[in-house]
Design a protein around this nucleic acid. Sequence first.
DNA 1: TATTAGCACTCGAAAGTCAAGAGTGCCAAC
DNA 2: GTTGGCACTCTTGACTTTCGAGTGCTAATA
Lengths: 363, 363
Amino acid sequence: MAISERKKKILAAVVDEYIRTAEPVGSKAIAQSAGLGCSPATIRNELAELVSLGYLEQPHTSAGRVPTPMGYRMYVNELMEKQKLSLEESEEINRRLNARLQQLDDALSDVSRLASQLTDYPALALTAQHTVTVQRFDLIYVDANTFIIVLTLSSSQAKSKLVRLPISVDQKLVQRLSSLFNSGFTGVTEEQISPLLINSTERAADDTMGITSVIAAFVLETLTEANTPSASISGENRLLSQPEFRDPDKAHRLMSYLSGGGYILPPNSGLDAGDGVKVLIGPENVAEELKDSSVVLASYDAGDNTRGLIGVVGPTRMDYSAVAAKLSCLAASLSRRLGGGEAPPEGMHNKLIIKGDDPNDRR
Amino acid sequence: MAISERKKKILAAVVDEYIRTAEPVGSKAIAQSAGLGCSPATIRNELAELVSLGYLEQPHTSAGRVPTPMGYRMYVNELMEKQKLSLEESEEINRRLNARLQQLDDALSDVSRLASQLTDYPALALTAQHTVTVQRFDLIYVDANTFIIVLTLSSSQAKSKLVRLPISVDQKLVQRLSSLFNSGFTGVTEEQISPLLINSTERAADDTMGITSVIAAFVLETLTEANTPSASISGENRLLSQPEFRDPDKAHRLMSYLSGGGYILPPNSGLDAGDGVKVLIGPENVAEELKDSSVVLASYDAGDNTRGLIGVVGPTRMDYSAVAAKLSCLAASLSRRLGGGEAPPEGMHNKLIIKGDDPNDRR
DNA sequence: TATTAGCACTCGAAAGTCAAGAGTGCCAAC
DNA sequence: GTTGGCACTCTTGACTTTCGAGTGCTAATA
């Protein structure tokens, strides 16, 4: 349904103002702010129509207007001015991202923390489900009681573990195991590692001390960890500064949903491609707990043909424009760093160590 | 100053009751609960004295009594019955700890999350400052563009990184670098790694491609990370279910202090030894933000001659007894797993990967 | 026909009032 | 030293009142 140009301007003004103040906005305020030269009375007529069209609502008869989810949707799709970050701002983001990613590991939680700091809302970072295999297998013999397992994964990470044994092992045995694992366990997925395979390796290596199973356990553990999509959430506490979460119960419900590793995405939707930013407004969310909050999502190229997500959660009255701009810049920076086989900048190599939040952790 | 036996009983009853209900407790309630056969009037007299001694206070003239920090202190030191966990409970803790630690990495955040779940308060886990060195150094040559760095640390961890280069390297060069690093970079602390050392290694290896500095950077990064004391905090949101944090501003202040990696400990106090549990009540905390909260801390043996801390933060009206019992059990379990050079149980090896929370993250 | 000024009306938020109840402090009696 | 009794205090919650922002409608106007 088409809407007059003026109605759009008014709707935009209502949303902008409401985002700014969190208070229902009245006709007078609009008459001043939106530069269309007409009186409050005229605006009131238009507002009444916008209400009956479903874009706005009134908390009660004699209050100002508040956008409905449909109103926000219209705003996000057509009305809001796409905010461009200034050059300094986007360089700032790059710089901070760089500073973080130079650290080892924990990229995911660093990214979510950064997103939260940038936007001042709770933020999350997710990795996609993924099928990682072992590409190469090394055992380093240290001494009779000690060796190191080094796995090179198809995701271009190396994972290692120091194993100390209460018994002595023969260097020969370690070498045998190394080459057996290299032929038997490379290129296989997590599911293909069967007790059968482990047993036959154990026999072939002539391993009577159960070392094979220790190694196999590490391989499995590592693959499981690398395959599990994982999430990191930061800055839940920032919810509390939003007036819509002044009710501690409401805040608590959402926060514990989030820190329980809440599932933000519609399960089928997958992570879509492109650097586009996706906005889920209020009831558009599947999770009951999010029905009156909004989520802004941006996806990034995590290399190894997978994509990850960064998102921000806030009240429906969220500064969509600013958040979208920042997330999109952050996602682009991340993609540049992690993605696409390009040689990354000096000293930086693909690494996005997957980090587990236990999804059973909800309470 | 000595206090009559009866006063102690009464004080204990007040604290117990207040912990349970969060409401000021009156003389009548005590007369019933504490099994000392005397009337409310008698109790009132005693209460008045306890107030003037500083153990209790009244929110206003005609309200029940509430413990002061000094009252809690007395309670914690002498009065509270040391709660013993039932065998099932402590086995439950062990079991859950085990389930978590079998995962790779992230031990710290798993531990804090577990502590928070057990106690239903926000919890944190800290590692001590630490001086880790490289014990052994391996380079694995993969192909002309790829090699793997494997560091074995004095903390009995192995850390590895896959390095892909845009240029080709000679296998010989990799070997030379491996042995040079093994002699030059083992046993040295982070501070001892100087540009001088790096330069001389580079020259000795005849490395014209800057590979030495890539490796040295990884060594430095790894040591820095391993040496940095780090903290993980979980379950901040649980604060919101405490009536004393119904005020969102108050809750917000404390939560952002905590998730900013707040410094809980008096800077000089160090982490003390022993499995004792330490309680900091209200104003005993140094941080302004904690002045009206309490902290319960337990230290664990993190192996490698260092100790770590687990702690729980809550209102001064905290169930000290239960929290102390749980933390102490958890710390003991952890110590058993990480500490003391003992061979850990099947499949478990020393690993407490240090995980960074950026201390500059405060806002 | 679209816009505007004017005005009565509505409703929520904030302030004020009041009664009920829990708990005290004190006194006199045991 | 302990207890029952009683007047007093202070908070809490319910109820009322007031105030003001904002509306919807109508009639006048461009």
